[in-house]
Nucleic acid binder design. Structure first.
Length: 131
RNA sequence: AGUGAUAUUUAAUUCAUCGCUGCACCGUAUGGUGGAGAGGAAAGUCCGGACAACGUAGAGUAACAUGCCAUCUAACGGAUGGAUUCUGAGAAGUCAGAAAUAGAAAGUGCCACAGAGAUUAGACUUCCUUAAUCAUUGUUAUGAUUGAGGUAAAGGUGAAAACGUGAGGUAAGAGCUCACGACUUGAUUAGGUAACUUAUCAUGCAGGUAAACCUCAUGUGUUGAAAUGUCACGUAUAUCUCAGUAUCCUCGGAUAAAUCGCUACUCGUGAGAUCAAAUGUAUGUUUGGCUGAGAAGGGUAGACAGCUCGAAUUUACUCGGAAUGAGUGAAUCUAGAUAAAUGAUGAAUAAUCACUUAUGGUGAUAACAGAAUCCGGCUUAUGAAAUAUCAUACUUU
């Protein structure tokens, strides 16, 4: 049975890693989300991990409540869909993901899940190709 | 009953599945169980504190803030009560509301439009005196025109024209003089903690504006948890377990000491805690601190402390004229994240609104808004509901 968890370990925390993503990461786009992603070679000690972060720009949504709401929706969608596309067992190298919300309006959970599924599909193929 | 205004309170509830962050317990490679997890404004960051770091002889200047009085408070620019002035209502007693409410008699500036004149005030029309010229059935007079003065009483303008009424006075007039009244300042009397009020006496005649500059009084050291402290690339902080914290006397020293460093061991040498509280007499026991060893555990994307038990929350009684006030007793522990937890989905019930075949059904709506060191206020935002007061109360005539 698959577990749909999303704990502290899977979060992308360090500012250095995020700035690296912005500098050298590949990017994908489908409304309403933009994805920045990168793969790093595995050191032998650590087990491969997928880490993930969310940003919602303050320009477009001034109130903190709306920003929080959108972040939670994205996180929920990612939590439910991740194990189908990128399960932990099949990972050979660790992935960093950063979802950016680009739309001007607040969208429903369905549209967000669709875009996340699309993004994750794209990622599946690409990671296979590299190896 | 309804409507409106003001104030206060609440900020729909329950269940199921999946998930997130601390805490406690169990297990020890992963995890499991239990219980906790956002507001009245968490917002604006506008005041006041706690706390921390740095600075600090004393005095002054500048800057900023405050500006009737008393009480409350840790403190305040906050609250409560009172005073004064103004506005509204009323026949009156009174009632309601508002006020950056020290100083305009230190000085400077400004006062649109209108108006002759807006501050060393002012002469347009009137009124009065006078000179020249002209006119007249008025001739020491009257009238007209022009010039030189006087006048602030009348007209008109304005938000505002240097006090009101009456008398004297004068060519005409004028606080020019007098009486009464209003007002300013000062002294005394009575009441009040005080602001202030009452009465008497003296004094004098002053436009408004200080949310214009300014003057006076009082207060303020600067920076904010991104403060600050401890430690660190073989070990910090915290947790658990074990051992030690002794003896003597002349009370300041001596001896001893778990253990540690210097090379693995020995010698040698050096270091080395040796305190506090409670209980109480078996010179002991318990708790904390300190010293040392070990275990577990986390860890460079730095860790930990600061960090959540506090001017705390709830409640009962007492004090007080009142307060978001004070005191006493009882009960309770109630978020602690750090690229940011507090969520998602489904169902049911209740509320409001709309439609309808009408005490039922269908559909829609559910505000403002998200902790970041912590408290006390202020300000602003807010769908809906509930409660209280007033509009519309009372007394006298």
């Amino acid at each position: 049975m698959k577990r749909y968890t999303l704990g502290k370990e899977q979060k992308l925390k360090s500012p250095e890693a995020i700035s690296e993503l912005f500098r050298g990461g590949h990017s994908l786009y489908k409304y309403p989300l933009k994805l920045k992603w990168s793969l790093t070679d595995n050191q032998e000690k650590t087990t491969p991990q997928s880490k993930f972060g969310v940003t919602v720009p303050k320009r477009r949504f001034k109130s903190a409540v709306k920003r929080n709401r959108i972040k939670r929706l994205i996180r929920e969608a990612y939590r439910l869909n991740r194990p189908e596309y990128i399960p932990n067992d099949k990972l050979n190298c660790s992935i960093q993901l950063l979802f950016m919300y680009i739309a001007d309006q607040e969208e429903s959970l369905e549209t967000i899940t669709k875009s996340i599924q699309w993004h994750l599909q794209q990622l599946q193929t690409k990671s296979c190709n590299e190896e």
